[in-house]
Design a binder for these strands. Structure first.
Length: 739
DNA sequence: AGCACGCCGACT
DNA sequence: GTCGGCGTGCTC
């Protein structure tokens, strides 16, 4: 006898878990994980749809009370089936529960209600309703009377609102509906996000010679069987988008569908407009501001074949297209492709799997590819396509690096070095624009010396130590701690401490230095209001300001033709983050920033200020030399066994009670150590997570590194089982993360 | 979501 | 005592 774990297709949290059913004899060899089946459910044995999420030979429930599933109904639901198989893969790969994986992949389940918004309306005249209400009140039917009264007030009553606000339940409503006094109606309206109809059609531009060459190389790869994923490494401003558009056109002409993933931040009105302009009604765009219901509507349109192209952030990867032909991931290196919630999937890896499963092609693009993708390209797993020339052969900007230690020695303590100040002055004189950029991403209080640039690092992990409120310096990988230092251990200077600089202070300094300049500031504070992001950018593009100051959000893919100067104010801010990827991120940010300069007809310039002017990530970014950066960084990852040289498994445990967390983590660490010692893998940690406390929930983390992915997966599986068997972990939340 | 069960106030 | 509304809890 086999038993199937099934998730019931009822959109309610209370049944959001699996139920076990017996599999009838004749279906035993046919049934597979991911199939959609019919099951009797609940007291009335109502027939419902269910998703098979697992099969086993041993029952986990009293067999005398277990029902039998009635049939397989998957013939036309192939899209769903594939997505469920994808969820099963994600569950294994990233160590989440199946329910969590299914929820990420099939937003359909929760959203049924949101889509079919239900209303209650009166089915009788108002006078009659008044009479009925009176009768109900004099009787004992207070709840029903309440409902009728509410309907007299408000003709169309929201179903969910009604049940929430005055506790209306089905047993209150049904008699009224049966007697024909009220009626339940449903609206089915698509909530359109952007009105594509008003955007004029645009023709795709003709490819430049290098673009055409890249396109041809991709065509060649697509003829192979099976075609490899393609990585387009194109310098900033080389026009990768044009190549994508041609590829998209080709694939939809074949009658297949396309998913385009873009980083959240790039989902601007401009991008959306361009897609609508080129492909009109065939496109739909998702973004995180969309409500669950709106997102469901778009997915439904995709499933019905009303659209051919879906553009959106990582969640758009799960668009239920029936004949998927191509997945494009733009700015493939972006951090936002990695999910923060369980399953902590990476869109690049997951896209690769989905593409393989559905015979779709995959194209990644970036000016600064992730080490993971570039390594695969070097190993021949991906096809590497280069786009080396900027549009119309415009030169890359001239870059210089300023040594802030030198500035301090010369007595300049301002955030602006002398050469940067001079350069800004020049731009103002010529009526050109400047962008000043503060790469604060992931900024966590590291400690550095302003005289010699020394940064305090963990002796075991080679990542920057973080200063905590209690004054101690802590490593977030292994938990190493040491007291605060008063003097620089290398040069003895007392100028050692945390880094303090914000966009606001810089704006003030600029006002003082250049009283006539018009300055715009763009950071988290100034972009919180809806639409303000667009407003600031379009105002700067229209040259209504001379200087734009901001965090990394200003360096992403915008075209400002009058900008001829970019200044990176403190490259060290992203270089010394307590994370092994900080050099990669710094290189990416600086390269992107530098690429904003000189996009128009006038040549551009860029100035990078740093306490580590000779660090390879800064030097190679200044030289715009990706290959050199890759070699250096990869050597470092090999040396330290950091990904992609090795794989890394982290176990994140969180809980409200710090003591309980501490205890649970100790037990867990002991267990993991025992398992890992069989493979001779050292366990790193436990340590407080980089963000040690979120919303009063404490977080601790363990790390394991190994070159063989399967060994880590085995350790993860065993740990998962151990957690399941021990009730002591019930009150802790445990997440696996896998890189 | 839908159904049974059990509590509680009103009425024969 | 009994009837029926209405909240609660369970569904393999």
């Amino acid at each position: 006898m086999t038993y199937a774990d099934i998730i019931v297709d009822i959109s309610h949290e209370k049944v959001d878990r699996s139920f076990q059913y017996k599999v009838p004899e004749e279906l035993q060899h046919k049934l597979q994980v991911g199939m959609v089946v019919t099951i009797p459910f609940g007291n009335g044995n109502h027939e419902r749809k269910g998703y098979v999420i697992g099969l086993s030979d041993t029952p986990a429930f009293d067999t005398s009370r277990m029902k039998e599933l009635t049939g397989i109904c998957s013939s036309e639901e192939t899209t769903e089936e594939r997505l469920i198989a994808l969820a099963a893969w994600m569950k294994n790969q990233y160590g989440s529960t199946m329910v969590q994986a299914l929820k990420t992949v099939l937003p359909v389940r929760e959203k049924v209600k949101a889509k079919e918004k239900r209303y209650i309306i009166l089915n009788v005249s108002e006078e009659e309703a008044e009479k009925i209400a009176g009768k109900l009140e004099s009787g004992r039917c207070k709840a029903r009377a309440r409902l009728v009264r509410a309907l007299l007030e408000e003709k169309k009553l929201d179903y969910t609102k009604a049940s929430k606000e005055f506790g209306m339940t089905a047993s209150v409503l049904r008699p009224l509906a049966d007697e024909g006094i009220v009626q339940v109606v449903q609206d089915e309206v698509y909530r359109m996000t952007v009105d594509g109809a008003n955007i004029p059609h645009e023709e795709l531009s003709i490819l430049t010679e290098p673009q055409q060459e890249a396109f041809d190389q991709i065509q060649e790869e697509w003829k192979a069987d099976p075609p490899r994923p393609v990585l387009i490494h194109g310098v900033t401003g080389s026009g990768k988008t044009q190549v994508y558009m041609k590829l998209i056109r080709q694939v939809i002409d074949e009658g297949k569908q396309v998913i385009v993933l873009v980083p959240e931040i790039a989902l601007t009105y401009q991008t959306v407009r361009r897609f609508y302009g080129w492909f009109g009604e065939k496109v739909s765009v998702l973004n995180s501001r969309l409500s669950a219901g709106e997102r469901y509507d778009q997915f439904k349109r995709a499933k019905r074949g009303e659209i051919q192209i879906m553009v959106g952030p990582r969640s758009a990867l799960f668009t239920p297209f029936s004949n998927l032909g191509l997945i494009i991931i733009d700015e493939e290196h972006e951090q936002s492709y990695k999910s923060e919630n369980s399953p902590r999937y990476h869109a690049r890896e997951t896209a690769l799997y989905r593409a393989q499963m559905e015979n779709a092609r995959l194209v990644l693009g970036s000016a600064t590819p992730s080490l993971e993708a570039y390594t695969k390209a070097k190993d021949g797993e991906f096809r590497l396509v280069k786009l080396d020339a900027r549009f119309e052969d415009r030169p890359l900007p001239k870059v210089s690096v300023v040594d802030l230690r030198e500035e301090l020695r010369e007595g300049n303590r301002s955030v602006l070095s002398r050469s940067l100040r001079k350069a800004i002055e020049n731009r103002l004189k010529c009526g050109e624009q400047a962008i000043l950029f503060l790469n604060r991403r992931g900024y966590a209080g590291f400690v550095s010396c302003r005289s010699c640039g020394e940064v305090l690092k963990c002796p075991h992990c080679d990542v920057a130590l973080t200063e905590h409120n209690n004054g101690r310096l802590v490593c977030h990988y292994c938990g190493y701690e040491q007291p605060r230092v008063e003097k620089c251990p290398v040069c003895g200077s007392p100028y050692i401490g945390g880094f303090k600089a914000g966009t606001q202070q810089i704006e003030q300094v600029l006002h003082k230095n250049f009283p006539k300049a018009r300055i715009l500031r763009m950071d988290y504070d100034t972009t919180r209001a809806k639409g303000s992001y667009e407003k600031i950018l379009s105002s700067f593009a229209a040259h209504e300001a001379d200087i734009l100051v901001g965090t990394q959000m200003i360096v992403k893919g915008h075209d400002f033709p009058d900008v001829t100067l970019v200044g990176a104010l403190a490259a060290d801010l992203s270089l010394n983050v307590a994370d092994y990827r900080c050099a990669e991120r710094t290189f990416q940010l600086l390269t992107q920033a530098v690429g904003r300069s000189g996009r128009g007809t006038k040549p551009g310039e860029a100035i990078i200020q740093s306490y580590h002017p000779d660090h390879y990530s800064i030097q190679t970014a200044a030289a715009q030399d990706y290959e050199a950066f890759y070699q250096e960084e990869m050597a470092y990852r090999m040396l330290m066994d950091y990904p992609p040289a090795a794989h890394m498994l982290s176990v994140l445990v969180s809980g409200e009670n710090e003591e309980l967390l501490e205890q649970g983590m100790d037990y867990l660490a002991k267990f993991v150590e025992r398992i890992a010692s069989r493979y001779r893998i050292p366990v790193i940690g436990p340590a407080y997570a980089a963000v040690g406390k979120v919303n009063d929930i404490y977080r601790k983390v363990l790390y394991l590194k190994h070159r063989d992915e399967r060994i880590l997966q085995d350790i993860k599986d065993k740990t998962e089982k151990y957690i399941e068997l021990n009730s002591g972990f019930r009150r802790l939340y445990i997440q696996f993360d896998y890189t």
